[in-house]
């Protein structure tokens, strides 16, 4: 194999390794960035749905209290509209599950809200309304539901923090393949440099020294080369040249 092919092969391998390193780094970082983005979006949406549900249930509570002092038909219509809003947010939260424990909490919210809704409707549609009835029958259910919604919010916030910490360590993992390939390339470069020096640079130095010794001191041209490549042909040519000059 000639010098040109060997050197080209060396550089080709080096370039290939660097290409792998770059490709892996880009792939891993893109994957990580997508995962982080998705996680943030999902958690943000879940928190937002929880806020909307909390707001809806608080508005429903206010409507019940208004109804206690001043009974109006539109309050009931408004209650139904808010209930629709709440259920829509609940469905959206169910469709946007980010963590394993979320589904349990959402089911719990759905059950508690249904109980609250039934109780609140009975209260609104009932005849003589007493504050004590509200405090004993409707309010505890409202509290339990709000509590569950707050728990869902806290869970999403905590998981967001934990996921961020996990992705931070994943980032270190993501750069590992690239780092390994770079280190291997570095090792390869050392080997390549050493072999180039041994098989190409050293013979050139030996040839130069051999020619100089011949020209200056008329020492016989004796250079031994290990490989039969272009340098070996050069050595043979020099030898022939010296031989020819001697005969002249």
């Amino acid at each position: 194999m000639g010098i040109r092919v060997k050197i080209l092969l060396g550089f080709f391998i080096l370039a290939f390794m660097l290409f792998i390193s770059g490709a892996i780094s880009i792939f891993e970082l893109t994957k990580l960035s997508k995962a982080v983005k998705m996680m943030i979006n999902d958690s943000y949406r879940s928190i937002d749905y929880s806020k909307q549900m909390l707001d809806a249930i608080e508005r429903q509570e206010r409507l019940i209290l208004f109804q206690l002092g001043n009974e109006q038909a539109e309050n009931k219509v408004c209650f139904d509209n808010i209930a629709g809003e709440f259920k829509m947010n609940l469905d959206s939260a169910r469709a946007n599950l980010t963590f394993k424990d979320e589904v349990v909490l959402i089911d719990s919210i759905a059950i508690n809200y249904t109980l609250f809704e039934i109780s609140a409707r009975n209260y609104l549609e009932g005849g003589h309304k007493q504050l004590s009835d509200y405090l004993n029958e409707v309010y505890p259910l409202m509290l339990v539901t709000s509590d569950q919604i707050k728990k869902l919010m806290v869970l999403n916030q905590r998981e967001l923090y934990e996921s961020a910490a996990f992705h931070e360590s994943s980032a270190q993992r993501a750069i590992m393949p690239g780092l390994i390939v770079i280190l291997t390339s570095l090792l390869f470069t050392f080997v390549f440099t050493y072999l180039i020096h041994h098989y190409f640079v050293s013979p050139i130095i030996s040839l130069t020294k051999g020619i100089n010794d011949y020209v200056k001191y008329r020492k016989p041209f004796k250079v031994t080369l290990e490989t039969k490549d272009e340098l070996w042909s050069l050595k043979e040519s020099i030898f022939n040249l010296i031989d020819a000059s001697k005969q002249e």
């Binding site: 060997k6 391998i13 290939f16 792998i20 390994i180 390549f192 490989t227």
Partner: peptide
């Protein structure tokens, strides 16, 4: 991981063979 390791190991192992007799 196994494919990448295999390629890297083969490349580093193969290169000296083309130089050294």
């Amino acid at each position: 991981p196994l494919l990448l390791s295999s390629i890297l190991t083969a490349l580093v192992g193969f290169f000296p063979l083309i130089f050294v007799a």
